[in-house]
Simulated assay, not measured.
Amino acid sequence: MSLTQQLRVPPAAGLAERVRTAYFDRAKGRWITCLTEEQATSAAYAIFLHSVHGSVAEANRFAREYGTVYRVDTSTGRLRPARLR
């Protein structure tokens, strides 16, 4: 069983393929991939999950680059994506 099948919130359609086709831009010193808004939201959620038990650096950088972050909705106590731009 893959990890994807164990997730309560599955990744956006096509995200895995986009990640596999990412390339490293030596001049910028970062990996480059083109994501749809739905895929960027899905990636933000994955990075949020990592930040819960790891580093928040990735989540902060993703938020700056893509303008999407996951936050707790104080009225419901649930996570939801938020656009920063």
Rank of each mutant, 00 (worst) to 15 (best):
E37S: 06
T4S: 10
Y66P: 02
P10Y: 07
L3R: 11
R78Y: 09
T4I: 14
G77P: 09
V52I: 13
S55F: 06
V56M: 12
S2E: 11
Y66K: 15
Q6V: 05
L35Y: 02
I32W: 06
H53G: 11
D25F: 15
A63H: 04
A57S: 12
T4M: 12
A13V: 12
V69I: 13
A44I: 01
E65C: 09
R30K: 12
K28W: 12
T74V: 11
R64H: 12
T36V: 03
R85S: 08
A59T: 02
M1R: 12
R61E: 07
I47W: 01
R18V: 05
R18F: 00
R71D: 06
Y23A: 04
A40H: 00
R85P: 15
L7P: 02
R8T: 07
P11F: 03
A63I: 01
R80L: 11
L15Q: 02
R78Q: 13
T41N: 04
A63M: 05
A43P: 02
R8V: 05
V72C: 10
T4A: 14
T41Q: 09
F62L: 04
R8D: 06
E58C: 13
A82E: 13
V56F: 06
Q6E: 15
V72N: 04
L15H: 02
S42F: 00
R71A: 07
L35D: 01
A43M: 13
